[in-house]
Design a binder for these strands. Structure first.
Lengths: 242, 242
DNA sequence: GCAGTCCTTACGAATCCCTGACGTTCGCCA
DNA sequence: TGGCGAACGTCAGGGATTCGTAAGGACTGC
C-alpha cells in the first residue's frame, strides 16, 4: 500500500484529503507544519507528498527543498489561488504537479494517482530523480536559486538587491541572447515605458558584483546599439587572448 | 484558436507546458517521441512546434528537419543547458527560437507568443524567404546568429557594427542574388531615399572584415552597373530556381 | 580616350554607453 | 515618532564608437 504524506496547517483540509486518499487505497500520514513534515518525510519516506505552499513557520517551498534533499520524491503543491507566481515558484522548486485551492478532493486523488503512475513508469537508470530538476540555475561560476532568492558566485553568496537578482535571473534564463533595454524593462521591471537609463545603471551595478573586472565585463557584454547579452562561460575556462 | 504541438519525452515537462499553453489560449497537442511528433505534425499541421532537442529514438534535430520538409512551420527548441553547441545546432537546423532548461513555463509562453507574432506579420513583400525570421544562418566560413547578434568567421567572432551586421544578414538571407544599392538602402536601412554612397562605404567596411583579400572580394562581389551579390562558397549546390 | 561607375580615405557629427552623483522612498530600529 | 541607511530611479557630463557624407583616385566598358 502506497504511503502519502499530507502537509497542511488547516486540519479541516488535511482531514478531508486524508479521508479521500484513504478510501482510494492509500496509507496516509499527516503533518501540520514544516518541521514535522520534514521529520516524517525523512524518517519514513512516503511515495508522494501533498504539500501546502503556505505554511506557518517554514515555507512550503523550503519544505519541498528539504524533502527533496533526502531523495527523489514526487510532490504535489497546494497553491492558494490560481496565482501565477505561486505556480511558477512551485514548479521551479520542482513540484510535480499543483492543485489550486479551492479544489475538489476527488481531483486531488486523481492527480496523486497520475503523478504516481508517471513516477513509477520511467525507471531512470541513474539515481536521478524522475522529476525534472527545475530547481536552481547555473552558469559558469554563478548559481541562482529563484525560490530561495539566493545567488552565489564561486560558492560565495552574493548580496544582490531585488532588481539585481531579477536581472540576473533573466540573464541566466536567456543566455546567449541579445536583449534590448526596452525588453529588459518589460520583462524584469514589468514596465511598458520608462527611463531606459534605469536599466543601464542596474546592469552596471550588477556587473560590479558578478564580474571579475567590471570595466571589462565578460559575463554581461554590451551589444552596441542593441542592448546586453549574457554569455555563459564555456566549459573550459582557458581562452587565448587574441 | 492556434494549435501548438509540444514534443518532449518527459511527461512532466510536456504536461506542465501543455497546461500553461492551454491557459494562455492555445490548443495544445502533445507527442512523446520523434516519429509520433512527425506523424502528428504532418497529419494536422499546428501553427508552431515546441521541440525538445534530446529525444529518445529520433533526434530533435532530425525531427525538426522532417517537420520542416512538409512546409514552413515555426519551431522553438528546448535545449539542455545554456550550451552553446546546442544553440548553434538548433539554429542551423532552422529553429526560430530556443529556450534553455531549466525554464519557467511563463517564459516559454512568452516565446511562443513572440514567435507567432513575428511569423504572423510577413514583412517582406519579396517572394524570397519562406519561413526565416530568427533562424541561424551559415554560409561557407561564416555563421550568423541574429538572436545573439553574433557573427563568426572560421569560428572566430567578428566585431561587426549594427549596420555591418544587418548588411551581412541580408546577404546571407539572399545569397546569389544581385541587389541594387537602392534596394539595400530600403531593406537594410529602411530608407526610401538617401545617399547611395552610404551603402558603398558600408559594403567596403564589411568586406574589410569578412574577406580574405578585401581588394579582391570573393564573398561579396560587385556586379557592375547593378549592385552587389553575395556568393556562398560552393560547398553544396543550392539551386535558386524560384 | 572618355564617360560613367566604383573604391578608398578622411573627418565632423551624431549616437550610444559608462560613470558618478543626487534626491526620494521605504523599511528598520532606537 | 523620528532618524538612519539601503535601494531605487533619474540626470548630466564625458568618453568611445559608429555613421553619413564628401572628395579624389581607380577601374570598367565602349
Amino acid at each position: 500500500m502506497k504511503r502519502v504524506l499530507v502537509v497542511d496547517d488547516d486540519p479541516t483540509v488535511s482531514e478531508v484529503v486524508a479521508g479521500y486518499l484513504t478510501r482510494a487505497g492509500f496509507d496516509v500520514d499527516v503533518a501540520a507544519d514544516g518541521p514535522s513534515a520534514v521529520a516524517r518525510a525523512t524518517a519514513q519516506p512516503p511515495e508522494l507528498v501533498v504539500l501546502d505552499l503556505m505554511l506557518p513557520g517554514m515555507d512550503g517551498l523550503e519544505v519541498c527543498r528539504r524533502i527533496r534533499e533526502t531523495g527523489p520524491l514526487p510532490v504535489i503543491m497546494l497553491t492558494a489561488r490560481g496565482d501565477e507566481e505561486d505556480r511558477i515558484l512551485g514548479l521551479e522548486v520542482g513540484a510535480d504537479d499543483y492543485v489550486t485551492k479551492p479544489f475538489s478532493p476527488r481531483e486531488l486523488v486523481l492527480r496523486v494517482e497520475s503523478v504516481l503512475r508517471r513516477a513509477g513508469a520511467p525507471a531512470t537508470a541513474q539515481g536521478a530523480p524522475s522529476v525534472p530538476r527545475l530547481t536552481g540555475l547555473r552558469a559558469g561560476p554563478l548559481t541562482l536559486d529563484p525560490a530561495a532568492r539566493r545567488a552565489t558566485r564561486c560558492g560565495r553568496e552574493l548580496a544582490l538587491t531585488i532588481r539585481e537578482f531579477d536581472l540576473l535571473e533573466f540573464f541566466l534564463r536567456n543566455p546567449g541572447r541579445a536583449t534590448s533595454r526596452e525588453e529588459l524593462m518589460r520583462r524584469v521591471w514589468g514596465w511598458e515605458f520608462g527611463d531606459l537609463s534605469t536599466v543601464t545603471v542596474h546592469v552596471r551595478r550588477l556587473r560590479e558584483k558578478i564580474e571579475d573586472d567590471p570595466a571589462h565585463p565578460r559575463l554581461i557584454s554590451t551589444v552596441w546599439g542593441v542592448g546586453y547579452r549574457f554569455d555563459p562561460p564555456a566549459a573550459n575556462g582557458a581562452d587565448d587572448a587574441a
